[in-house]
Amino acid sequence: MLILIAEDDELILRTIEHKLLKEGHEVLLTRNGKEAIDTIKEKDVDLVITDIMMPFASGIEILSAIRAFGKKVPVIVLSSMGQEEVVVDAFDLGAADFMVKPFSPNELVLRIKRLTNQLS
Protein backbone atom coordinates (compact mmCIF):
# COMPACT_ATOMS: atom_id res chain seq x y z
CA MET A 1 0.00 0.00 0.00
CA LEU A 2 1.31 3.48 -0.87
CA ILE A 3 0.86 5.75 2.14
CA LEU A 4 1.46 9.52 2.18
CA ILE A 5 2.46 11.07 5.49
CA ALA A 6 2.05 14.83 5.95
CA GLU A 7 3.71 15.95 9.18
CA ASP A 8 5.97 18.88 10.05
CA ASP A 9 7.53 17.25 13.13
CA GLU A 10 10.57 15.41 11.79
CA LEU A 11 10.73 12.85 14.61
CA ILE A 12 7.06 11.89 14.27
CA LEU A 13 7.40 11.79 10.47
CA ARG A 14 10.47 9.51 10.60
CA THR A 15 8.95 7.26 13.27
CA ILE A 16 5.76 6.69 11.28
CA GLU A 17 7.84 6.14 8.12
CA HIS A 18 10.07 3.56 9.82
CA LYS A 19 7.09 1.80 11.34
CA LEU A 20 5.16 1.61 8.07
CA LEU A 21 8.20 0.44 6.07
CA LYS A 22 8.63 -2.35 8.59
CA GLU A 23 5.00 -3.29 8.02
CA GLY A 24 5.73 -3.62 4.31
CA HIS A 25 4.12 -0.42 3.04
CA GLU A 26 5.55 2.10 0.60
CA VAL A 27 5.78 5.59 2.05
CA LEU A 28 5.82 9.15 0.69
CA LEU A 29 6.97 11.87 3.08
CA THR A 30 5.79 15.49 2.99
CA ARG A 31 6.63 18.17 5.51
CA ASN A 32 3.95 20.75 4.79
CA GLY A 33 0.38 20.91 3.54
CA LYS A 34 1.18 22.34 0.10
CA GLU A 35 3.72 19.62 -0.63
CA ALA A 36 1.15 17.02 0.45
CA ILE A 37 -1.57 18.45 -1.82
CA ASP A 38 0.81 18.52 -4.81
CA THR A 39 1.85 14.90 -4.18
CA ILE A 40 -1.74 13.70 -3.80
CA LYS A 41 -2.61 15.43 -7.09
CA GLU A 42 0.27 13.75 -8.93
CA LYS A 43 0.26 10.27 -7.43
CA ASP A 44 -2.36 7.67 -6.65
CA VAL A 45 -1.85 7.12 -2.97
CA ASP A 46 -3.88 4.51 -1.07
CA LEU A 47 -3.94 6.25 2.29
CA VAL A 48 -3.07 9.66 3.76
CA ILE A 49 -1.94 10.29 7.33
CA THR A 50 -1.94 13.99 8.04
CA ASP A 51 -1.30 16.34 10.91
CA ILE A 52 -3.95 19.05 11.40
CA MET A 53 -1.68 22.05 11.91
CA MET A 54 1.02 22.43 9.27
CA PRO A 55 2.78 25.20 7.38
CA PHE A 56 1.30 26.49 4.09
CA ALA A 57 -1.85 24.32 4.22
CA SER A 58 -3.60 22.55 7.09
CA GLY A 59 -4.89 18.99 7.29
CA ILE A 60 -8.37 20.38 6.66
CA GLU A 61 -7.17 21.98 3.42
CA ILE A 62 -5.66 18.65 2.37
CA LEU A 63 -9.05 16.98 2.92
CA SER A 64 -10.78 19.71 0.90
CA ALA A 65 -8.21 19.28 -1.89
CA ILE A 66 -8.75 15.50 -1.99
CA ARG A 67 -12.48 16.14 -2.33
CA ALA A 68 -11.87 18.75 -5.05
CA PHE A 69 -9.66 16.31 -7.00
CA GLY A 70 -12.51 13.79 -6.84
CA LYS A 71 -10.23 11.19 -5.25
CA LYS A 72 -11.50 8.65 -2.76
CA VAL A 73 -8.48 8.32 -0.50
CA PRO A 74 -9.01 7.40 3.17
CA VAL A 75 -7.43 9.94 5.51
CA ILE A 76 -6.29 9.49 9.10
CA VAL A 77 -5.98 12.80 10.92
CA LEU A 78 -3.43 13.42 13.68
CA SER A 79 -4.61 16.16 16.01
CA SER A 80 -3.41 17.67 19.25
CA MET A 81 -5.34 17.99 22.49
CA GLY A 82 -7.94 20.74 22.32
CA GLN A 83 -8.49 20.53 18.56
CA GLU A 84 -11.82 18.71 18.88
CA GLU A 85 -13.70 21.21 16.73
CA VAL A 86 -11.19 20.88 13.91
CA VAL A 87 -11.49 17.10 14.10
CA VAL A 88 -15.28 17.44 13.69
CA ASP A 89 -14.63 19.60 10.59
CA ALA A 90 -12.23 16.92 9.33
CA PHE A 91 -14.91 14.24 9.68
CA ASP A 92 -17.40 16.46 7.84
CA LEU A 93 -14.89 16.57 5.00
CA GLY A 94 -14.60 12.79 4.92
CA ALA A 95 -11.76 11.88 7.31
CA ALA A 96 -11.83 8.15 8.01
CA ASP A 97 -10.26 8.18 11.47
CA PHE A 98 -8.30 10.38 13.85
CA MET A 99 -5.67 10.06 16.58
CA VAL A 100 -4.76 12.53 19.30
CA LYS A 101 -1.10 13.41 19.88
CA PRO A 102 0.79 12.24 21.90
CA PHE A 103 0.04 8.97 20.19
CA SER A 104 1.15 5.37 19.98
CA PRO A 105 2.70 4.31 16.63
CA ASN A 106 1.54 0.74 17.33
CA GLU A 107 -2.04 1.92 17.63
CA LEU A 108 -1.68 3.86 14.38
CA VAL A 109 -0.63 0.65 12.59
CA LEU A 110 -3.63 -1.18 14.08
CA ARG A 111 -5.96 1.53 12.85
CA ILE A 112 -4.45 1.34 9.37
CA LYS A 113 -5.03 -2.43 9.36
CA ARG A 114 -8.62 -1.99 10.53
CA LEU A 115 -9.24 0.67 7.91
CA THR A 116 -7.73 -1.49 5.17
CA ASN A 117 -9.93 -4.44 6.23
CA GLN A 118 -13.02 -2.24 6.17
CA LEU A 119 -12.19 -0.94 2.70
CA SER A 120 -11.46 -4.35 1.25
Binding site: D9, L11, I12, T15, P102, S104, P105, E107
Partner: peptide, 11 residues
Protein backbone atom coordinates in the same frame (compact mmCIF):
# COMPACT_ATOMS: atom_id res chain seq x y z
CA UNK B 1 10.95 16.54 24.47
CA UNK B 2 10.55 13.37 22.35
CA UNK B 3 9.07 11.40 25.23
CA UNK B 4 6.12 13.83 25.30
CA UNK B 5 5.22 13.10 21.67
CA UNK B 6 4.37 9.43 22.15
CA UNK B 7 2.29 7.19 24.36
CA UNK B 8 2.21 3.48 25.13
CA UNK B 9 5.12 1.25 24.23
CA UNK B 10 6.83 3.97 22.18
CA UNK B 11 7.03 6.20 25.24
Amino acid sequence: SSERKFTGKAR
